[in-house]
């Protein structure tokens, strides 16, 4: 799967989790850019990404990822 394809899938997960199809995520998107992205939603997001791509994040990744780009790095590495 190419990085663009992963980003596209991740974007769709964002639509689903935040119930908002106007969200456009980029490599640079951070929690500060999306209003409802708090620690609780972060957990839902993590669970959905794990489900979609079929792997589990390590705890340090859940806590450490700074933007969507870093999330994509981990996904690329895992799948």
């Amino acid at each position: 799967m190419s990085r663009e394809e992963i980003l596209k899938k991740v974007n769709e997960i964002f639509w689903d989790v935040f119930d908002d199809e106007s969200i456009v995520v980029t490599e640079e998107t951070t929690a500060a850019d999306i209003e409802d992205w708090d620690s609780l939603t972060h957990i839902t997001l993590i669970s959905e990404v794990e489900d979609e791509f079929g792997f589990t994040f390590a705890m340090k990744d859940v806590l450490g990822m700074k933007n969507v780009g870093e999330m994509l790095d981990i996904i690329e590495e895992q799948i």
Partner: peptide, 16 residues
């Protein structure tokens, strides 16, 4: 169960 959710957020039950 998702152990890391408990360590990070004190949530014992998995989202699933």
């Amino acid at each position: 169960y998702d152990d890391k959710l408990y360590y990070i957020a004190k949530m014992p039950l998995s989202t699933a």
